[in-house]
Each structure stands twice: as C-alpha cells, then as structure tokens.
Write a protein that binds this DNA or RNA. Structure first.
Lengths: 196, 196
DNA sequence: GTCTATAGACCGATAGAC
DNA sequence: GTCTATCGGTCTATAGAC
C-alpha cells in the first residue's frame, strides 16, 4: 500500500469521526478540538489534512449526495411502472438512512444554515433536483391512474420527503426493525392509509 | 398600565425576538449580541431582564409546551369517537405550528441538544407524554375497529409525529394553503392513502 | 432600562519544530 | 503526520455609571 493510499485512509477516518460529531452535536456546535480529541490528536494537526472545518463538512456532504442522486437518476430513467418507481425511490431513501446515517442527519440539520454560504450553493441545487425527481414520479403515478386525481402533488411530495428523511432522527441500524421493514410499513401507510 | 405590566411586556418582546432568531439560526448559533441588535439595545442590557441565554430558551419552550399539552389532555379525556380524537389531535398540532412557529421549530431543532442539560430534563418528559397521548389514541382506534389491525403502533406514532412537526420547516402563515388545508390533506393521506 | 467597559473562556486557524 | 505554542477574534456574562 502506497503512502498515497495511507493518507487517503487517514483522511477518511478523520472525516468519519467528524461526520459522527457533526451529526450528533451539530456543525457549529462541534469544535475542531472535539474532532481532534475523538481522533486522538491535537487540533492543529487536523490542518495537515484539511483546509478548514468547512472543508470537512463540504467533503462529507458532496460525496454522499453524488452517490444518492445517481441512484435516483437510475430509477427515473428506468422503465418500471409508476408505482414500482415510487416504491423504489422510497426504498433507496431508507437505505441511504441505513448506510449513511450521519451524512443524512447533517444534511437535514445543517443544509439551511450552510446554504447561506456561496460555497454550499450546490445544496440548494440538490434540493431542487430532489423535488424534480419526486414530482416526476408522482405525476407519472397520477396520469397513469395509479394514484388519486385529487392530490396536491407539491404537498404529497413534501410529506414523503419529510417523513422519509426525518426517520434519521430515530432509526438506528441493527434495531428491531430493519430499514426494509420500515420502508414496507411506510409504503403501506402512504399507499393505502391506516383505516380498515 | 403599571410598571409591572410594562416590564412584562418588554420581556415578552425580547423573548419573541429571541425566539425568532433561535428558530431561524439555531440556539447555539444565535449570540446575545444578535438578540440585542435585533431589539435595538446592547448585549449587556439583556441581563437586566434575563439570567442567561439559556433562561430565555427555557422560558420560550416551557410556556409553549404547557399550552400544547393542555390541549392534548382535553382531547384524550373527551368522549369523541376514536377517529374524531385522532383527527382533533392532528388538527391541534398543525394549529400549533401556525400559531407558535418559532417555538415548535426550536423544540424540533434543539430538544436533543438541550436535553443533555439537567435544566431541560422536562423536554424528555414531554416527549414521553406526547408518545403516551398518540399511543392511547391509536390503540383506541385499533380496538374500536376504526383502524387496521396489522399496524405497528409505535411506527405509526413516529410517522404521525414526524410528519406533523416537520411541516414547521416549510409552513408559513398566510401562504396559499392554510394550516387547516394542510391538516385536511394530511389526514386524507394518513387515513386513506394516496392510491386510487 | 440602557450604556460603557471589560473580564475570562473558548473558538478557528497558523508557524515552525520534530 | 503530529506536536508545541500562540495569535486574533468572538463569545457569555458581569460591575457599575447614568
């Protein structure tokens, strides 16, 4: 293994430690000393790896979002029927919560605040991109007759988006219910309601 | 009007200004100078009215929660049928978002962090109390036959709680959809689903 | 009730030794 | 790649004048 690979591994370790803290305590509320302490080094040493605290959260968020939106794009471009596409998009989202809990939590909690800086303008773009994906899936569903005609699409989009992502607040990998169980129950409620 | 009442009014003004900032920028990310600036005074002058920044957020949260849980208690104790009670609890919650946007936002964003201090231990109690209310309403619904038997009550509770309260992120009073419109659409989805 | 002035702590970031 | 040492800035909170 080259020293290049070693460096890259160490960077990733530090980013993972930072992500855990940003997700738990918040970006502003996490100090570089917190991150360094958790990594067993001193705060000044972090600046050998990263320009600033902002660079760390930037790297964490942008690499995660690239992965997630790649998956959404595949679903939208696919040729499954509308209901199956909606199903797949919901499942991919709960899977992202399972695999990238910290990244999702940071995006949920900090996007509004970070978005005020030019550096993080791409966060607003991603939000718009996400809205486009869900609107497309819901409109396909309505025009194909799979979904009710009387729905306010924008409102349904918000309910789906919010309910899916907010699960990151309580979901813990390895708990009684897997992310697949949760997606199943959630899709049942969303599609058919809770009345008997 | 007595000087007592004047003092109380000024306190309330300052609390409202602080609540707006805490809700928008976050508690930790709002400085006492921010609050003072918005009020047109200097930061030191705030300490004539309040012990600390923590006291401000404490007062904001506790008085709001007292009001909200009073309403939940009335609904639970009432003699409406299970479905009407569930309906009422959802409507009261969206109404709270309409009337106390900042307070709800602060609770949503900061409860986890603030809850780590003894002073805010009551936040965890309120969470448990909320869980009890919704579980009671949902269990009544299932045993009366109004709701499906195959629901995971804890999961349904979380979905309702999350979806209702997270609306504070995008709901703005005076927008196209009133809080009643939103409650209507939300109850439709929750009760009957989005499929045709 | 607000101001002036400042204490004391903590913050992000840097320079240079090892 | 980490440490020592520290700078300049900002934070909450206080003391006392007006």
């Amino acid at each position: 293994m080259t020293s290049q690979a070693q460096t890259s591994t160490r960077r990733d370790e530090l980013l993972a430690i930072a992500a855990e803290l940003f997700a738990t305590k918040g970006f502003k509320n996490t100090t570089v000393r917190d991150i360094a302490d958790a990594a067993g080094i001193l705060s000044g040493s972090l600046y050998h790896h990263f320009d600033s605290k902002e660079s760390m959260v930037d790297e964490i968020l942008s690499s995660f979002q690239e992965e997630l939106f790649g998956k959404y794009a595949e679903i939208v471009a696919g040729d499954a029927d509308p209901r199956a596409k909606l199903d797949a998009a919901v499942r991919v989202s709960f899977e992202a919560i399972d695999r990238h809990r910290n990244e999702v939590a940071i995006f949920q909690n900090e996007a509004d605040y970070l978005g005020t800086f030019e550096r993080f303008a791409y966060l607003a773009d991603r939000n718009q991109q996400s809205r486009d994906v869900w609107h497309a899936l819901l409109n396909e569903g309505v025009s194909s007759g799979a979904l009710r005609q009387d729905l306010d699409i924008e409102l349904v989009y918000r309910f789906i988006r919010d309910t899916v992502w907010v699960a990151v607040r309580w979901y813990r990998p390895g708990a009684k219910l897997s992310h697949t169980d949760i997606a199943n129950q959630y899709l049942t409620i969303l599609l058919d309601g809770i009345t008997s």
